[in-house]
Design a binder for these strands. Structure first.
Lengths: 194, 194
DNA sequence: TATGGTTCCTAACGTTCGTTAGCAAACGAT
DNA sequence: ATCGTTTGCTAACGAACGTTAGGAACCATA
């Protein structure tokens, strides 16, 4: 049971993340959040500017993490496409499992961002998915991978990954790395040319 | 452009489904819903008892549809496990694509149900997933299918299917049956013993 | 012509919402 | 000892929320 002293702002983000995940952004009131922190609602505004600012930070922090992981996984172009893809999958899973609550918010609550943040977010998200799409497309071209349709394969791949926060429990019998490895194995096997 | 005359109640359900999907249940107000229908907020209550009643109808209607489809798909036990699984997958996709908006609500907004409806819903959902799990488990036993872990395979299978409402667009180039068939093909290929 | 169901309105209810203003205690650094 | 930062409080703001009451058209059927 280790614990680091977080700044109040970080505590707010963390508690809000858990609430946004289980109740949803719109259904979580500032008074609930305050109560979970043991303070009054008005007090929160000594640390943040608005409720949406919290959501914004959660969503874009994770977007950054996903991007950084993908870049690192595919940096070495000397690797085979399959190996780059495996690393990207494992990185994706690692980001997801590192903070499941934040991941769930990232995946489902972003639509409560108001413009222009919402559009910015969707642009980032699309860019990220394009990264996977291009990787798979290259694999099909070189013959390393096989699938009837690259776009289709990309969607089902990311679907399997992004469903993880709905069932993953930290402290389960499988470690994040176990899961990452096993998922990569299972998803790649369907794509690899025999 | 065909259109059938719906009862006002059915129109309310339909419009609410679209709004719940795009804005979320909690963030959709009765005044928004009324405005989308071209009437005043109070008028809605001539047709329904509460906002949650609408959500309840949407969620349980789809639960019934999923169950009925699964039962029909696996009714003939003379079929191979693989064939039963293929039919169940195609049925699942057919229900999803038949009303994407309602499916999205079913998948994401059920947590705004209050007790005891929420627990009832989760019980149904778990029973449905157990159906797939047992089918896959049987396939592993008979040797028809192969996978390192039946539970894991079930989760990734349903994940791929349930992600569909986030990207599926009716009037796309693929018909619902095309998609059903293609998804079943791709997902089964990873499971079938070679 | 009367009746009952469907449909919609206006006006308002009590509650909760996100947020702000103004003030105060505690704190580490200078 | 002083000062700025961090942290928190109470009280209240206007707005929006889900919902209700009571009344009034409309329309098919009897």
């Amino acid at each position: 049971m280790e614990s680091v002293t977080l700044s109040r702002k970080a505590q707010i983000d963390q508690t809000a993340t858990a609430l946004f995940r289980s109740r949803g952004f719109a259904a979580t009131s500032m008074r609930e959040l305050a109560s979970a922190l043991g303070i009054e609602a008005g007090s929160i505004y000594s640390h943040i500017r608005s409720k949406e600012e919290i959501l914004h930070r959660i969503c874009f922090r994770l977007a950054d993490a996903f991007f950084a992981g993908f870049e690192a996984s595919t940096y070495d172009k000397a690797q085979t496409i399959a190996e780059q893809l495996r690393r990207a999958i494992e990185s994706h899973v690692r980001v997801l499992t590192q903070d499941v609550a934040a991941s769930a918010v990232f995946l489902h609550e972003w639509r409560h961002l108001s413009e222009p943040a919402r559009t910015e977010f969707l642009t980032l998200r699309e860019r990220y998915e394009t990264g996977f799409h291009e990787l798979i497309q290259q694999g099909l071209t070189t013959g390393e991978l096989h699938a009837p349709d690259a776009g289709f394969a990309t969607l089902t791949l990311l679907a399997s990954l992004n469903w993880l926060p709905t069932w993953y429990k930290p402290n389960g019998k499988l470690s994040p790395d176990d899961i990452a490895h096993r998922l990569a194995e299972q998803l790649l096997r369907g794509l690899l040319t025999i």
